[in-house]
Structures are given as C-alpha cells and as structure tokens.
Amino acid sequence: MSWKTRRLRGHEGAAAMAFLLPNFLGFLVFTIGPVFFSLVASFSNWNLQRTIPFQWIGLENYAKLFHDPDFWLYFVNTGYLMLGLPVAIGGSLVLALLLNRDLRGIVAYRTLFYLPTFTSGVALLILWKALYNPDFGPVNVVINWFLDSLGVNRLVAILTGRELSAPQWLLSTRNLLGIGVEQVRIVAKQWGLGARDAIIIMGIWVAIGGNNMLLYLAGLSNIPQELLEAAQIDGAGRWATFRHVTWPQLAPTTFFIVVMSFIGGLQGGFEQARVMTGGGPAGTTTTLTYYIYTKAFEEFDIGYSCSIAWVLFIIIFVVTLINWKFGSRELNY
C-alpha cells in the first residue's frame, strides 16, 4: 500500500459519512423513526376520537389482541393465503430453468410471463372476478364441461352416489383445509374450494412469471460455467447437475425469495379484499393488513392497529431468523 492510498484510508470514515448521509437520513426518518414510533404508539390507547383521553396502557393492546377472535381468524386467513407461496416459488424456478437458454423468442416469453406483474391492480382484480363468476365465468365453464361432457361426474356418481358441482369461488367460505368461518377449527362442511382458494390461484398466476422468475434467471446466469462443465465431465446427468450444482448455487437467491415472499405474503391481501371481495364472504378473505387498515381508519383505534402491525413484524422477524439459521449457513451476504 503506497503512502497515497494510506492517506486516503485515513479519510475514509469522513468520506463514508458523506456518501451514506443522504440515504441514511431518509432511512432514519422514513423507516427507523416510524418503526419506533409505531412501537411506542402500540403501548398507548391513541385514538382519533377526542372523547378518549390519551393514555399509556402498557401491554394492554397486546393482551387484548390475544383474546380477539377476529385477530386469530384473520391471522389464519393470512396464513392460508400464503399456502400458494411454495407453488409460486417452485413455479418461478421451473420457468427460469426453462427460459435460461438461447431459445428463439425468449424475449417474448419473458415478457408474456411478466405481463401479470405489469397489470396487477384494479383492472386485473376485476378481470379475475369475472373469470371466477360461478355461473358464466370461463373458469367454471371449463370445469362444468370437464364434469359433464367428459363424463367425470357420471364416474363420480357411480363411485360415491353423489355428483360434483363446480365451486362457487368468491362467493363461498369453503376452503381446502375445511377451516370454519367463526372459529379456528376444522369443519367438514367447509371443505371444498372457495374465495380463499380463488385468491391463491390468482396469486400464483400473477407471481409465477414475475420478479421471482427474474431473480432466479439472474441467479442462474451467475453460476460459473466451469462448475456446470465440471459436473458434465464427471458424467453427472441433468438431475444430478441440478441437485448438486445448480440448486446449491441458487441458495442465496432462494433464500432471498423465500424471505421476501414471506414478508409480502404476511402483509398481502389488501387490494384483493378491497376490490374483489370486500373482505368477505363472512370475513374469510380479510387479512391482517386489511384488519389493521379497518382498525386504524374505520374504528380510529391507532394504538391497537399499531400493536397488530408489530405482532406481524415480530412474526416475520422470528421466521426470518429461523430461515437464516437453517437456510443461510453457507451464505455470504
């Protein structure tokens, strides 16, 4: 190291401050500050209605939350809607593997798969609402054709004595786990396909070719070519190459995607609830974010909604730590 660079090093602390400052200030004001502010607010009864005097109430909001049946139901709803994440992530990986080569028309494919991500918003939700119409929506038209014209129903009727009918989708409280409407327990009557499953399917369709696929494509293109060639020289088949070279090399990407999807999933469901279902039927598509919004902006109980937000944060934090412990042993961030 020459004397000149050493001289520069001496100034690095000051230079670093200068480079960091613009971003750090904003980060402090719009991220760190609000996080602590909301933590502090969650210990109060802060309410927008003037007749309720401001008070510090310690952990009371959190205690109330644990006995709030709605919270647990919406928590289960949120968790249920995340069941599609593994499928979406796996699908993104498969798509990325298929697209990671010099095929003709690759740009067209990538763009087509990315289309849902462009459109996500009111129009897309309205479009899916129409697709799910139980009577004349294309989804059920196909299902009914499958059931009736292909004779599936005749077969089912012979085997079980009952006929299958197409799901009511957004109008139905049924779900694949048979979760009850008013209590978190399994009810046989609730078994089937309903609003939550409809939202999951739509979510997978949107996510599969979106940012996760891009991240996987980036991860694939970063795998050193020597590693793949070495595996082939050793005579490894395609599956073995994937299993022992590609998959471990994609670990940082997968880790990142899993964590980010989890965070996204836990705070998701707002627009769907607002535009497609209004949180219904019977609250089955109300997620925690929608509940926080309701509590803060409709019931004006800011303190309580902050405590829900913080419980959400703690859950994410714990899950990420677990992820980190098991998933990132070999990672280097």
């Binding site: 309205i126 609402k129 129409a130 119409n133 139980p134 009577d135 004349f136 009511q168 109008l171 039927p281």
Partner: peptide
C-alpha cells in the same frame, strides 16, 4: 340467492 344473483350480475 347470492349464487343466483351472481348469475345475473354483469360488470
């Protein structure tokens, strides 16, 4: 019923 309503609904 809600189902019959949905069948009549249009956007």
């Amino acid at each position: 019923s809600p189902v019959e309503e949905a069948a009549m609904a249009t956007t």
